[in-house]
Design a protein around this nucleic acid. Structure first.
Lengths: 178, 178
DNA sequence: CAAGTGCCGTTGACCGGTCAACTATAATTT
DNA sequence: AAATTATAGTTGACCGGTCAACGGCACTTG
């Protein structure tokens, strides 16, 4: 029937390896190329699958999930918009619109801040929490299947230590870090 | 002045680790969490930087670059739109529009196929090739700096072998692979 | 060779996200 | 206290990409 919809993605990719010209070192060689390509393509593929599953089984986006999760972990289950923006690495306007959607879905409410009238909190509703819980199972399962399952525990730890050196890898995200 | 534009990204992120509820295994623990988080966040961060550099120094996108590169490596420096779509992991319509842009920029021409009137080739122009070459230096340099430089050769190779197991990592992309 | 079937590329409608401009509030300077 | 500057959030315009529908062409199959 179909299956003609080639999955999209945000790949990118690398650099010559053959003979565009055969000049300088503007090329990536062997194993370095492999590493880089695998990095890009696996990311694209995994995220795509993750998103598809979450969308089809829970009608939310990976981003939605992420926001719900951050809120669930936050004290009082609420966070200022800016905090959300920073955590998710979206712009403030991006978060505004994303939260708009979640509010419309009933997963989040906007509440105002007593001590600073500029800030508006995004607060997780009970339905939001329920959604997160139900989606969580699926999602974590998928992450295991698509990512973690390919490694032994030691490998996972080695991988973590390698990837952990890359730019951006160390920005927050943990439980009570910040 | 500013620097208030928090860099955006397509992160996602993981799963609880604290105490959303303290139920089942719908959580990611320790080192697995680290690996997954690093994977997501480093990707987001690196691609963002890469894109910014390419945009500011060469006025093209990472995707543009990718397409140019694929064409440069192709026999006769041209490829059918569908082939491009597959390589880049974009949809056919996505490629149409992307190529539109590159044609407008003079980097690509559309030519038709003698043996099959349905296909239209995207063919690299000389300017396109020049663009690729000049951008290539910057780009590959950035990849080295942002990614490769964080690893010794053995580490790179180990990383390649780990990432190489992930879904999507083995799809084509090499020189004369197909 | 006429009719079905399927593939190629483009287009329209939409969506998620950015950027830049703006409003309202807070904090700082004078 | 008034003026300045900075911060929080929203909005409008736009962009890159998807999806679904379509038109042109090629390949069966009657």
């Amino acid at each position: 029937m179909e299956a003609n919809t080639v999955h999209p993605a945000e790949t990118t990719v690398l650099a010559p390896a053959c003979s565009v010209g055969d000049e300088e070192d503007s090329r990536l060689e062997g194993v370095a190329l492999e590493a880089w390509r695998s990095f890009l393509q696996s990311h694209a593929t995994i995220l795509r699958l993750l998103d598809a599953e979450l969308a089809s089984e829970h009608a939310i986006t990976t981003r939605d999930y992420e926001v719900l999760l951050y809120l669930a972990q936050a004290p009082d289950r609420r966070l200022p918009m800016s905090a959300l923006a920073e955590s998710t690495m979206l712009t403030r306007s991006g978060i505004t619109r994303l939260v708009d959607g979640l509010v419309a879905g009933g997963f989040i409410e906007r509440t105002s801040c007593a001590s600073d009238a500029r800030v508006s909190y995004a607060a997780l509703t009970d339905e939001g929490l329920a959604k997160l819980r139900s989606a969580g199972c699926t999602h974590v399962g998928s992450i295991r299947r698509l990512f973690l399952e390919h490694f032994t525990p030691e490998e996972t730890s080695r991988l973590a230590s390698l990837l952990g050196r890359l730019p951006g890898a160390q920005r927050g995200g943990a439980c009570t870090a910040e």
